[in-house]
Amino acid sequence: MEMLGFSAEHSREIIRAVDEAVSNIMRHSYQGRLDQPIEVYCNRLQRRANGETEQGIEILLFDCGPAVDTTKLPARPLDEIRPGGLGLHIIRGSMDTVQYKRAGRLNRLRLVKYARSSKGGCGSAAEKPS
């Protein structure tokens, strides 16, 4: 990730998001079963934003679990002190884009982060795989 220009902190955010995503798949999609497949793909992205070319990374995670009901995802408020439901907040807080999609019989989670992005300020830039 360093070769794409990610700082050490942003690299840790990406690792953390992927770790939490895989944990969520194991825990929720596969109900704790450890022998089920998870496919992970990484692509380099490039986009023009503010007159500069930014390098990014796209991570796709596929699993064969039942479709996720996105209305029931545990996006609990963080202003209460109780454990649980933090994984999704960590994923969303770490990446620029978090998209879930049912693709045939698979769940697809798409995570994107740009090396020079600041969260919330990159919605209009067009992205393309390099």
């Binding site: 050490a8 955010e13 960590i90 807080g93």
Partner: peptide, 28 residues
């Protein structure tokens, strides 16, 4: 933390790595 508040004791952390500090920050 919850248990310490309920029992009136103190629960403190020390020696956090950058990564540990970041995950607490992102979890607010």
């Amino acid at each position: 933390l919850k248990a310490s508040r309920e029992s009136g004791s103190r629960f403190v952390l020390f020696g956090l790595s950058d990564s540990a500090r970041e995950v607490l920050k992102i979890s607010r």
